[in-house]
Design a protein around this nucleic acid. Sequence first.
DNA 1: CAAGAATATTCGATATTTCTAATATACAGA
DNA 2: TCTGTATATTAGAAATATCGAATATTCTTG
Lengths: 114, 114
Amino acid sequence: MPETLHRFKADIFQALAHPTRIAIIELLSSGELSAGALIEKLGMEQANISQHLSVLRAQRIVANRKAGNQVFYSVRDPIILDVLALMRRYFQKQVGEAKEMLKEMENDLMEPSR
Amino acid sequence: MPETLHRFKADIFQALAHPTRIAIIELLSSGELSAGALIEKLGMEQANISQHLSVLRAQRIVANRKAGNQVFYSVRDPIILDVLALMRRYFQKQVGEAKEMLKEMENDLMEPSR
DNA sequence: CAAGAATATTCGATATTTCTAATATACAGA
DNA sequence: TCTGTATATTAGAAATATCGAATATTCTTG
């Protein structure tokens, strides 16, 4: 109800609203990784990944731990992973529905008289 | 893993990434409402709400049913409501943690010797 | 302290979002 | 068919997000 809560949710969603950042979180889902490891696994520009990590940090979605030369990132709260898992289920459901619609359309083409 | 899935999730999150759109979805959580009812409850510009509804429609998050003069909107899949509910839990947890941190800081101020 | 490695930040250019105001469309009833 | 009501779309301005290139910072090691 309160505007504050809506804004909070919206800000988290905004932080999640980029394919690269989702890829980052999923890579971190099985444990912490250094920024360098993320850059290597994703095959993208160093600055770019660093900027995306900065967005995730700003919303406190990831934690960062400095170890000597490197910085290790991890997902702060597993609830975020639950959200992503829900999204996967949602995706599967949507794809399933789309498939069924196509099947129906096919049937209509085969039996135009009914 | 696949880029497609990441983009799909990101697009949904993007559609959710606005306080007004979250408010709309929560208003629709207990059943369908006309566009006009949403505009009234939210107290915002007609065009603005219509545009936000358009974003939600584009991602197929809401369904719309025309009835005479009006258009009734509803949430297509309750999974989306589950996502919002998870977000609320997440928010509560974050606030709880922030509170604890403040309490610790207070204690440190009271007992500087320890 | 100098040099290299890992990471972060800054700077512009471009693209996307969001808003308000104005206009368009669709429908209902006289 | 004319009028009013409900909703959608368009247009343009301002704000925000994204990217690559360049630069800065921090740490380690010789």
